[in-house]
Computed example of a mutant assay.
Amino acid sequence: MAEIDFMGVLHKSTQRDYLARVNDPDYPKAKAAELAKQFDHDYWDGDRRICYGGYRYMEGRWEKVARALVDHYQLPENPKILDIGCGKGFLLYDFLKVIPGAEIYGIDLSPYAIANSKEEIRDRLQVGNATQLPWPDDHFDLVISINTLHCLHAQDLHPALCEMERVGKEHKYLCVESWRNQAEKANLLYWQVTCEAFNTPEAWHWWFKQTCYSGDHSFIYFE
């Protein structure tokens, strides 16, 4: 297990006004969170003050992440790749630009995301829950989960991590939100709308140990 940052380049490209978000007169944090936690239109394509404000495919944005993952992990010629919390499938679509022969799969709890996913790969995506993955043991050459598992409560986080470990052969990578000091904790609380697992890096490592998660990881901090 190693900490490897594949996501920092994307996270740091966004400018954030934490106080404006938490104090918005139309979508104060509690209201925004209630809408976002439905993981429906408001979360993906609603007002920016709720969440993404229009989650659209951007040429090359996710390809750099896919390429970094492929360059790091030694995958077979036609690897099986699973994205847990795949959203609209943009990262999986860009994996095919890097490895055209990859066998891609995605799962997400949002019917809206799957219905509005990248049309070219929609038949490779399905609605489902990270706590019960519909694949056999050691099925995938690479399993990834980006900005998803911190949205789970403790009772779901444990089985989700166990499931991620179960279906992956060797290479696994997850990225979750975290905090190292009180400033980052406050910023995370101000900015997030779906986070339930407010863990420090040390607490995340405890979770990894409890669930026997052996893959790699990285943390998103709100500095």
Results as ranks from 00 to 15, higher is better:
residue 57 Y to D: 10
residue 171 H to E: 11
residue 189 L to N: 12
residue 131 T to V: 15
residue 44 W to Q: 03
residue 156 D to R: 05
residue 55 Y to I: 00
residue 182 Q to L: 14
residue 100 P to G: 09
residue 134 P to C: 06
residue 90 F to Q: 14
residue 115 A to K: 08
residue 109 L to P: 14
residue 76 P to F: 08
residue 126 Q to G: 09
residue 168 G to F: 08
residue 103 E to P: 01
residue 177 E to Q: 12
residue 59 E to S: 10
residue 79 P to K: 08
residue 100 P to Y: 07
residue 171 H to S: 13
residue 63 E to C: 03
residue 186 A to W: 15
residue 177 E to H: 12
residue 148 T to I: 04
residue 188 L to S: 07
residue 83 D to N: 01
residue 50 I to K: 02
residue 49 R to S: 01
residue 154 A to Q: 14
residue 94 D to P: 13
residue 104 I to T: 09
residue 47 D to H: 14
residue 166 R to L: 11
residue 74 Q to A: 07
residue 91 L to R: 03
residue 142 L to A: 07
residue 97 K to T: 14
residue 162 C to L: 09
residue 69 L to W: 01
residue 158 H to Y: 15
residue 132 Q to F: 11
residue 77 E to F: 09
residue 99 I to V: 13
residue 109 L to E: 09
residue 171 H to T: 04
residue 143 V to D: 02
residue 158 H to F: 15
residue 190 Y to V: 05
residue 103 E to A: 07
residue 167 V to L: 03
residue 137 D to C: 08
residue 181 N to E: 05
residue 138 D to P: 00
residue 148 T to K: 01
residue 105 Y to W: 14
residue 110 S to P: 10
residue 135 W to L: 10
residue 68 A to S: 15
residue 115 A to S: 09
residue 92 L to I: 06
residue 159 P to F: 01
residue 82 L to Y: 00
residue 84 I to A: 02
residue 145 S to G: 04
residue 100 P to A: 06
residue 148 T to A: 10
residue 122 R to S: 09
residue 132 Q to D: 14
residue 79 P to D: 08
residue 113 A to Y: 08
residue 128 G to A: 11
residue 56 R to L: 13
residue 53 G to F: 04
residue 50 I to W: 00
residue 47 D to V: 08
residue 106 G to C: 08
residue 78 N to R: 13
residue 133 L to R: 12
residue 51 C to T: 03
residue 103 E to H: 12
residue 142 L to Q: 07
residue 61 R to F: 06
residue 49 R to I: 01
residue 105 Y to D: 08
residue 161 L to T: 00
residue 64 K to R: 14
residue 90 F to A: 14
residue 185 K to G: 02
residue 145 S to H: 05
residue 172 K to I: 01
residue 128 G to E: 12
residue 119 E to C: 01
residue 70 V to L: 05
residue 124 R to S: 08
residue 153 H to Q: 15
residue 132 Q to S: 15
residue 106 G to V: 10
residue 108 D to A: 01
residue 157 L to M: 02
residue 146 I to C: 01
residue 181 N to W: 04
residue 170 E to G: 11
residue 84 I to K: 00
residue 56 R to A: 12
residue 129 N to E: 13
residue 105 Y to F: 15
residue 126 Q to C: 04
residue 170 E to L: 14
residue 58 M to A: 15
residue 188 L to D: 01
residue 93 Y to T: 10
residue 44 W to V: 00
